[in-house]
């Protein structure tokens, strides 16, 4: 099994659905240690993508879809999440190039490039209590799954599980990047909202493969 443009579109649609449903929850996470808009921002961005996914040209590739997501997020989300996720999708688009469909190696390249893009823009390291704390475990799990010869479904599931644990593992941390860094010790005990949205995005990626017959 490889993943084609249809999967990519389904992934983004599913992400939009999940983010809309998680809007309030992400706002609440962000209200505790940020400024309360992360759910709003992500929902605004992904809702803006939906109409653009109608009537895509016949020659659309996964890379084109990812690029479309990137430019839409950059131009509609704002805040920290806009440029960071925008860059992630832009670099991911670059990594998959013009491939018609993505195999396990391509998926590893995709998440790795996405993560590297975020680091390039945001300069966060693991343990800084940011979305990187979800991305990096996901990248590692994806690479391990590929090395172990997993298929794309198992690979994305492993990545999603790792991102979820990574997000949860931000809770005891003091933040060194993003708004939560202003809180010092008071950020302890709260989950980073961006790591949570990353976990939701990667879970959506796995879900649409597993839901595909």
């Amino acid at each position: 099994l490889t993943l084609d443009t249809t999967w990519t579109v389904r992934w983004i649609r599913r992400s939009a659905e999940v983010l809309a449903a998680s809007r309030a929850a992400l706002n609440t996470l962000d209200r505790d240690i940020g400024d309360g808009d992360h759910g709003e921002n992500m929902d605004r961005g992904f809702q803006a993508i939906l109409p653009k996914l109608e009537n895509l040209a016949i020659e659309t590739t996964p890379g084109t879809v990812l690029k479309l997501v990137a430019t839409t997020l950059i131009s509609t989300v704002g805040g920290a999440a806009g440029p960071l996720y925008g860059t992630a999708f832009l670099k991911a688009a670059g990594a998959v190039g013009t491939a018609q469909s993505l195999d396990a190696a391509a998926l590893v390249a995709l998440v790795t490039a996405a993560r590297d893009g975020i680091v390039l823009r945001g300069k966060a390291e693991e343990g800084d209590k940011t979305m990187i704390d979800a991305w990096t475990p996901a990248v590692n799990a994806a690479a391990a799954a590929q090395a172990a010869g997993s298929g794309v479904g198992a690979l994305l599931l492993a990545a999603a599980d790792a991102a979820a644990s990574g997000a949860q593992a931000t809770e005891p941390l003091v933040a060194r990047k993003g708004r939560a860094s202003y809180l010092g010790e008071r950020a302890i005990g709260h989950r980073d909202p961006g790591s949570q949205s990353t976990s939701l995005l990667l879970r959506a990626a796995a879900d649409v493969v597993l839901a595909t017959p």
Binding site: D37, E40, N41, I74, S75, V77, G82
Partner: peptide
């Protein structure tokens, strides 16, 4: 001006 408490986008 961006959205309330959200920085504007580059455009």
């Amino acid at each position: 001006p961006g959205a309330v408490f959200t920085s504007p986008t580059p455009d």
